[in-house]
Amino acid sequence: MQERERDQTLRDWLHGHKGILLKVVQAYAFTPADREDLFQEIALQVWRSVDAFRGESAVATWLYRVALNTAIAWTRKEKRHRHGKEPLEAANALIETALPRRDPRLDWLYARIAQLDEVDRSLALLMLDGFSYREMAGILGITENHVGVKISRIKMALAAKLATEALQHESR
């Protein structure tokens, strides 16, 4: 595939599905500089993977696959080694916080997701976006049964946290 076609495909995919990439970035990187770096790294991997996309799965599934694979293997250190310089200045930012201010419930949810280990974080994202166990198993390369065990553990932890905070809220 020509580079121009690949650029166009990336543009189309970003236009339709950049929310997926941004969710993954938000779950795996916790400072603006890291988010910038991870987003660029994911976009780069998506761009490189355009040729490998055979249309056997939905674009959204493919993007999740690439984004999660990249995010999990990504480390903050890589950026400095890759570019040999500190993060980009704010004026050149690739991603900026959108206005208006986001829902505080989302902050709460992302904070809970951040407490999970890297693997469970990816499962939590897929679960929240409504992927089936089968799709999750395909994306992660583990069995559906295994996915089920992990998901029920994540759901239980999330529900317990919600219950604890509800109790604390009532007692105040």
């Binding site: 941004l22 938000q26 050149n92 690739l94 916080t97 959108a98």
Partner: peptide, 15 residues
């Protein structure tokens, strides 16, 4: 309403 805006022109350049 995504949480972030993306500068697609700069992204292409960076890639």
């Amino acid at each position: 309403a995504p949480l972030y805006r993306v500068d697609e022109g700069r992204l292409q350049e960076a890639l």
